[in-house]
Design a protein around this nucleic acid. Structure first.
Lengths: 216, 216
DNA sequence: CTTAAATTAAAACGGTCGTTTGAATCAAAT
DNA sequence: ATTTGATTCAAACGACCGTTTTAATTTAAG
């Protein structure tokens, strides 16, 4: 059997169990957080034996890392890809375009099941106690952040790298808030609510990063 | 014994225990989160019998609510007071001044021990699973938010209440991010780091809320 | 078919969890 | 001094935790 087209390839029993565990863990972790989600609850939701969690992931922490890694790596790749495409294009770089590249994974996920997962998972990474997730964040996110900060700096001459990293920091905070709660408290979101909120987030962030109106 | 000056009044045994428990719980919850903090760890850190936690707070959830309430009510009061003082003053309202009123509790806390507590606690409220803290947030925060949104709207004619609530939503996200991580990843914060970050947060948020430079 | 490896299964390990109980101790008022 | 209520204490409750062990079962290769 060749390794070529893995999409059509049938998964062996072990891989199927691995996926069932990760899916169940992902859903429960999003709902209740990492500490409050037990391996027994995960195994039960996945319809899998409890020991399978340790067989496939070694430990609860190992499962957490796998769950986060599976979703976050494609996000980072999509972001870097979108930014590279932007930089190699002929159009001039704008803050608006760069931020849309950063939010690309969420624009892309519209209409897919990913939209019910990605926001909750990203938000949870930032919500868990730092000792659990800081290594994951550092590993998966820091180089992506650096690339975007550098790109943003090019469009805002006169803004130091340090200052731009602060602004990027605040922008990420707004993004997390949006992913976590979607609309503000008491504001219901209608039909195409996610796209609407995302566009508002872009506008808000562009203003914050450019800071054209602020007088010192 | 009169009730007048409670500051000099000695606390009876029960109140002292209550405070010791809340102090210990606060510190541990900030460090490890609610689910990962056990009542035994709290009682141990407070040098108090385990059963005292249930005697004084009824349940773990009850303790959580008391811990949050104790710090958050003064924050809300300080914010509303600062905003009222602003509105009854003769100077024209500005977004900058309103936001500084909103951040007032953190400006005030500079140099006090509160600065080691408030940021971590506020950040944790937003980090815990929604089912735990959403009632607390709704109760303690929503009316304060409404007052500030209304004030901001007056300084930005043409911005609907709904739109301003979104911008305020994003601003809160940036604030949480700052309170939780202080400086961006990999950026160390020197001597007067907190004040510096707070000022950057104000500038960023003013730009986002006014959105002067954004072309649709 | 046989054999070896990969995977699943059931059961138990020692611990810790939130909560409850009932007696002991303390404080203040009669 | 005695009584009453508030508070503290040690101990235990049943339940659940992450992890490990051992054996059964399935899968794939010789």
């Amino acid at each position: 059997m060749t390794v070529s087209n893995r999409a059509e390839q049938e998964l062996n029993s072990g891989e199927v169990t691995r996926l069932k565990i990760m899916d169940a863990a992902e859903s429960l972790i999003i709902q209740h957080g990492f500490a409050a989600t037990s391996l027994r609850a995960i195994a039960n939701a996945a319809d899998v034996n409890l020991a399978a969690t340790h067989y496939h992931f070694g430990s609860k922490q190992g499962l957490l890392e796998s769950v986060f890694h599976r979703r976050m790596r494609p996000v980072g790749i999509a972001r870097l890809g979108a930014l590279s495409a932007l930089e190699s294009g002929k159009a001039a770089l704008t803050v608006d375009a760069i931020l849309k590249a950063f939010f690309m994974p969420f624009y892309d996920a519209e209409g897919s099941e990913l939209l019910t997962i990605l926001p909750g998972l990203v938000a949870r990474i930032y919500a868990e106690p730092a000792v659990l997730t800081q290594p994951l964040l550092e590993k998966e996110f820091s180089q992506v952040a650096s690339r975007f900060v550098a790109a943003l700096q090019k469009t805002c001459p006169g803004v130091s790298e340090q200052e731009m990293r602060w602004r990027f920091h605040f922008m990420v905070g707004s993004m997390i808030q949006f992913l976590r709660f979607q609309a503000p408290m008491g504001l219901v979101n209608e039909a195409d609510g996610f796209r609407d909120g995302l566009d508002r987030l872009v506008n808000y962030s562009v203003a914050g990063i450019e800071q054209l109106g602020v007088v010192e």
